[in-house]
């Protein structure tokens, strides 16, 4: 059933140009962050780690939250237009699965952009002529945890988009969420707040320092949030007039 729903989601998004943004957006920090890195080699002396900071700092705090917000708004907008909810919800499909299929669709896009960010990081490092070997294991961890944190954000945004039938407002909330995430990360509560989990997982501000919460508990927190918001989204779909 879930596979069929995922197929349906894919069909709805076919020929839609929104995925292009997830490909273009990481190119901007990769290009300009690398130029900035090369221009400040005297200050940025930690090679791959300094380059990672340049590539991901603003991306995690401001731009990926907004992109995720736009993508989730768009996915929900497809149903809000022309009373598509009415058609969708009379199908013999559990509402929780409908929510999950949308979350998985958004998650795939987040995973794709994380892989792309990682690939651009390696390409930039090689072009810069960094002598040390790339930190492969850490890169995989940053990207995987970034994806996990991004999925939490997507789960929250989908709930908001069910609740608010506007395109722009949930994106504004995602932007505010990203900023609140930055503030809580600075205060040391980055592992608690849904909007700071992505930046926390990607270790964009201090890639060399160990996370205050180790990998296991971080993954548990993320999975817990995803489960919580999936249940909340399913309940919202059942109770709220769509």
């Amino acid at each position: 059933m879930l596979l069929k729903l995922l197929k349906a989601e894919r069909m709805k998004l076919r020929r839609s140009p929104v995925w292009i943004a997830f490909i273009i957006m990481p190119v901007v920090p990769a290009l300009l962050g690398t130029i900035n890195y090369l221009g400040n080699l005297g200050v940025l002396q930690s090679e791959w780690y300094s380059l990672w900071t340049q590539h991901t700092l603003f991306t995690c705090y401001f731009f990926l939250p907004i992109l995720i917000g736009v993508y989730c708004s768009y996915i929900m907008r497809l149903e809000q237009n022309n009373h598509n909810w009415n058609r969708l919800l009379v199908m013999p499909v559990p509402r929780g699965l409908v929510y999950m299929s949308k979350l998985i669709t958004a998650s795939l896009m987040i995973a794709l952009s994380e892989i792309w960010i990682g690939a651009l990081f390696i390409i930039s490092g090689k072009l810069c002529g960094l002598s040390a070997a790339p930190p492969w294991l850490e890169l995989i961890k940053w990207c995987a945890f970034g994806t996990l944190g991004g999925i939490v954000m997507a789960a929250v945004q989908l709930c908001i988009s069910i609740f608010i039938k506007s395109f722009a407002l949930p994106v504004g909330i995602a932007f505010g969420g990203g900023i609140s995430g930055l503030a809580l990360l600075a205060k040391g509560y980055g592992y608690i707040w849904p909007y700071s989990l992505m930046a926390y997982g990607m270790e964009s501000n201090a890639p060399q320092e160990a996370m205050t919460v180790s990998s296991g508990p971080f993954a548990v927190i993320c999975i817990g949030y995803i489960a919580l918001f999936t249940i909340a989204g399913s309940i919202l779909m059942s109770r709220k007039e769509l």
């Binding site: 839609s16 140009p17 929104v18 292009i20 943004a21 273009i24 957006m25 901007v28 731009f63 907004i66 992109l67 736009v70 993508y71 708004s73 768009y74 907008r77 395109f167 722009a168 994106v171």
Partner: peptide
């Protein structure tokens, strides 16, 4: 499709 102005603006 309001996603287009959003993406163009953000980039």
């Amino acid at each position: 499709n309001q996603a287009i102005p959003f993406f163009a603006g953000i980039i």
